[in-house]
């Protein structure tokens, strides 16, 4: 249970997925900090290979030639209601500043902690017989560093670290539309994502064309609507290449109706049975 005062400033990470270019600076900064380095009381050395304390995940939406590539940096969420803390029985501690630490001494041999984490954020160090995770670079913050290494190394400021009270963080989250991973677990992560739906949700894309004087042309400004069970769930207007992207669709298989209209063309429609992100064949509108 989290018994800390909610006005104490605590560490949080805010990751804006839309700013991430998948450069892996964050991944390498974490490796640079921890591989071969021992920080007693905080973390034992990370093995050279195989551990991804900060792990990049990739989502590809659609098919050539209309695709969305989205990258998701994931790491220990420093949950406020952390299963690892519960299972750890003292081997995992929650600090007053929100950081969760797996004690590199007390946790020796505790393979169960790997399974305790519902995020797959705990890595097993075979050589040291130790469960390990990303420690928010608590050892550096305690020395006065202003941010953990992954945030410092991120060139696009996709990762930012903030030390604020829980109330302030809640306000930030509401204001910026931040989400956390697997909120349904109730773990209350301290890693917050912006634009998370870009990763988790589906995209339906396509293009609209027509024949003009016998020549095939892209249609700009066509209005595309996607409906499910009579309800419009997404809208878009085609660009100069006649392309549209309907983003943030729920990630469940569904039957949709796609409608395309244009001032000077006859409207057309198509049923779409969506089972994942998809790119449709060009839809052809005929002149009025």
């Amino acid at each position: 249970m989290n018994t800390m005062n909610s006005s104490t400033p605590k560490w949080n990470l805010i990751i804006d997925i839309d700013r991430c270019n998948n450069c892996n600076n964050c991944v390498l900064a974490v490796k640079d900090e921890h591989v071969g380095n021992d920080f007693p009381g905080y973390a034992a050395p990370q093995p050279l290979h195989g551990h991804h304390w900060l792990e990049m995940k990739r989502a590809e939406h659609g098919q050539a030639p209309i695709v969305d590539i989205v990258n998701l940096p994931t790491l220990c969420n420093h949950c406020d209601d952390a299963p690892c803390v519960k299972v750890g029985q003292g081997a995992v501690k929650k600090r007053d500043d929100g950081i969760v630490l797996i004690d590199p001494q007390a946790a020796r041999g505790r393979r169960d902690l790997v399974d305790a984490c519902p995020y797959g954020a705990v890595w097993w160090n075979e050589e040291l017989q130790l469960p390990q995770h990303w420690i928010f670079d608590a050892h550096l913050l305690d020395q006065g560093w202003k941010a953990p290494r992954c945030a410092q190394a991120c060139p696009t400021e996709a990762i930012r670290a903030v030390k604020v009270s829980d109330a302030e963080m809640a306000a930030l989250a509401a204001e910026q539309g931040l989400e956390v991973l697997k909120p349904e677990l109730g773990t209350r992560p301290r890693v917050h994502y912006r634009n998370l739906k870009r990763f988790t949700h589906w995209v339906l894309a396509g293009s609209v064309v027509t024949l003009r004087d016998g020549v095939e042309e892209c249609i700009e400004g066509a209005e595309v609507t996607l409906s499910h069970a009579g309800q419009v769930v997404a809208r878009a207007v085609t660009d100069a290449f006649g392309e549209y992207r309907l983003r943030d669709l729920p990630n469940v298989a569904r039957r949709y109706e796609l409608q395309v209209g244009h001032r000077h063309r006859t409207a057309a429609g198509q049923d779409v049975n969506l089972v994942g992100s998809a790119t449709l064949q060009a839809l052809r509108l005929s002149p009025d």
Binding site: C20, C23, P65, V67
Partner: peptide, 15 residues
């Protein structure tokens, strides 16, 4: 290739 710059910036891809 829909390269990482395309992935970050978005827009029209001509493969």
């Amino acid at each position: 290739h829909y390269c990482p710059t395309a992935g970050m910036m978005g827009g029209k891809w001509m493969p």
